[in-house]
Design a protein around this nucleic acid. Structure first.
Ligand code: DGT
Ligand code: MG
Ligand code: MG
Ligand code: ZN
Length: 593
DNA sequence: GCCGTTTTCGGCCCGACTGTTTTCAGTCG
């Protein structure tokens, strides 16, 4: 007689769900007045979980989640509790004491957990609406530490709708466009000695940015801040201090501007480039060496001397570290790898000049704007050795479909263009739709006539994770699928990735010899940096592709290169840095299998 | 709550800015 089947274990919570639970619990503990370091521990644990490339719930069940920096025994148990019961008892308890509206209050500028808690305790305020009424009735000023000015700013923020919508983040390419004009204007105003640079998440080439952080030195701060306010891109200056200014561009993008003396420029640039997590870890490590880092210098306990650094390299050198490229400064292992006396090493990051080809672009055959010849010449102009022409496939909508017969003619046209145009190898390819069942929308005979197939999901995004993962893995197992295009379908700040278990997709790509694309469209940058790092680590050849729909967008690989660099990739991880013959041999269809 | 080239306990990055604080707390970056 078979043993009675155990009830199926509930599915493990995703890393995102665990991270959200820790963030919420951190917020609740903060409202509860817990010591701030405990709150910070929850937040850094949340980040460690979110960044982890594997299921942290599965790790915790094996007792191995503590291998992640920031997760100890207590939090490992909480992960198991969340996986087993679907909730955290500690959070349940605190949720019953603090209504959800209380957390909403802290979305207002100047309103943190301490003030929100006092408004709740002393005035019973537990929602934005109740706060508005109390402020309008001038009931806040009766409390110690609150005044008329505070009531004013609360009402102004509520009227401006700050509470309803979260402040939008700007895509990197839009932010950098504005940054260029700001830097130019400040350099023009500051005179020949001035140094101005973009810092913050924009310098780190993040997917999107909350604000533009700009640093300057070598000119009078008052002169620079007034010049900033006068620039045509700047709408208003919100406040000006001795150290800099806070302004807003006409686009709505906030600007953080800081100025120091010329010999502190390296200190300030290092500080304002961040990230916050990188800075905190760097400063903690420095303290252990008897050094104190700030944007003004590095104070040495032993001598009492403050070392000013005019360049960033000097800051890192003082701390016994190799220079760290801005894209790596996220406290994801770069400080350990940079230690000059340690065993690790930083990667030699891939650069745009390394790229020798592009394996995803469109022409007038589907929704592109240029012909095969025009795309080929533009690619050659960029110095490429090869280009794959990959128009959409038979089932693509919007009148951009390419029927099997049309694809046969397209193959002939590519072959002719390849013969006619010197100095670049053209691959006859297709961006083939992955159908809901994982099948492709051309026959294998036709796919075999192509030089290159990149397969992508363009329909039925709403499938559940299991179905979507199986769908994509089925496509990866097809011997004529050379690469997977934009693997999650995300649009940065606009559309979340479809549900898919990327760790399984990455394993399947590694197993089947399928390449994975980083689509460089600045709205996509898909595969994102986290999974791209995991994919490269698993040995999957990565492609940095433009998905250009015209000759003028081949250059968007700049953004894909940025994502690759943030993923710690070197040229050796990126297949389209190879010379053509070696690239061609790496395609699945060229394989000996 | 985490963590360790002085520690398994006692620390935990550092500064700008604001408001009402008579000497600094709270918030933010
Ligand atoms: N040492 C230290 N530096 C910080 C802290 N918070 C922020 N910074 C530094 C590092 C950040 O990159 C820099 C700019 O802050 P931002 O809030 O603008 O963040 P960042 O530009 O990294 O991202 P974002 O603007 O959100 O896209 O200031 C902190 O708590 N400590
Ligand atoms: Mg910023
Ligand atoms: Mg900022
Ligand atoms: Zn596509």
């Amino acid at each position: 007689m078979p043993p009675t089947p155990k009830p199926p274990a509930p599915p493990n919570p995703s890393n995102g769900a665990i991270a959200a639970a820790f963030e919420e619990l951190g917020d609740l503990y903060e409202l509860d007045g817990a010591i701030i370091h405990r709150v910070v521990a929850y937040r850094s644990a949340a980040r460690a979980v979110r960044d982890a490339p594997v299921s942290v719930a599965a790790l915790a069940r094996e007792g191995r989640a503590t291998e992640l920096s920031g997760i100890g025994e207590t939090l490992q148990q909480k992960i198991v509790e969340l996986a087993d019961t679907g909730t955290l008892a500690a959070a349940e308890k605190l949720r019953s004491r603090f209504p959800p509206g209380l957390i909403d209050l802290t979305r207002l500028p100047g309103m943190g957990p301490k003030r929100a808690r006092r408004l709740f305790d002393e005035l019973g305020l537990a929602s934005l609406e109740a706060l508005r009424e109390a402020a309008a009735a001038q009931r806040l000023r009766g409390l110690r530490g609150f005044g008329a000015k505070f009531e004013e700013t609360v009402l102004a923020a509520l009227d401006a709708g700050v509470a309803e919508r979260t402040a939008p983040r700007f895509l990197l390419h839009r932010a950098l466009g504005q940054a260029e004009r700001l830097v130019e204007g400040l350099v023009a105003a500051g005179g020949p000695e001035v140094r101005v640079e973009v810092a913050g998440s924009a310098r780190r080439m993040a997917d999107s940015v909350k604000d533009l952080d700009i640093v300057a030195a070598g000119a009078d701060p008052a002169l620079l801040t007034s010049a900033l306010a006068e620039l045509d891109v700047v709408e208003s200056c919100e406040r000006t201090g001795d150290a800099g200014a806070r302004a807003r561009a006409h686009t709505g993008l906030a600007i953080d501007f800081r100025v120091v003396e010329h010999d502190q420029f390296g200190n300030l640039l290092q500080h304002l480039t961040g990230s916050k997590e990188h800075n905190m870890a760097l400063r903690e490590a420095a303290v252990r060496r008897g050094l104190h880092v700030s944007e003004y210098g590095v104070l040495e306990d032993a001598s009492g001397e403050t070392h000013r650094c005019s360049v960033e390299e000097e800051v890192y050198r003082l701390l016994g570290l190799a220079y760290i490229e801005p894209e790596l400064r996220e406290n994801r292992g770069e400080l350990e790898a940079a230690a000059l006396d340690g065993p690790g090493a930083l990667p030699e990051l891939v650069r745009a000049e390394h790229l020798r080809g592009d394996l995803h672009c469109h022409t007038v055959a589907s929704d592109g704007r240029n012909t095969i010849e025009q795309m080929a010449l533009a690619a050659r102009e960029r110095g490429y050795e090869y280009l794959a022409i990959t128009d959409h496939s038979a089932s693509h909508g919007f009148g951009n479909d390419v029927s099997p017969d049309e694809l046969r003619r397209q193959i002939e046209r590519v072959t002719e263009a390849n013969a006619a145009i010197e100095g670049i190898e053209l691959l006859a390819g297709s961006e083939v739709n992955i159908m809901p069942d994982g099948g492709l929308d051309y026959d294998d005979d036709l796919l075999a006539e192509l030089d290159w197939v990149i397969a992508s999901v363009h329909t039925a995004f709403g499938m559940d994770e299991r179905e979507m993962t199986d769908r994509i893995i089925t496509a990866l197992e097809h011997p004529l699928v050379d690469a997977l295009g934009h693997p999650t379908g995300r649009l940065i700040e606009r559309r979340v990735p479809y549900a898919v278990a990327l760790d399984e997709v990455i394993d399947a790509a590694a197993r089947t010899g399928t390449m994975i694309e980083i689509n460089s469209n600045p709205d996509r940058r898909d595969l994102a940096e986290g999974p791209a790092r995991a994919a490269a680590h698993a040995g999957v050849p990565i492609l940095i592709n433009s998905d250009a729909h015209g000759t003028n967008t081949l250059s968007v690989v700049r953004w894909g290169v940025a994502t690759a660099r943030r993923a710690w990739l070197s040229a050796a991880n990126v297949a389209n840095t190879l010379p053509y013959q070696r690239f061609a041999a790496l395609r699945k269809r060229a394989g000996k299998g």
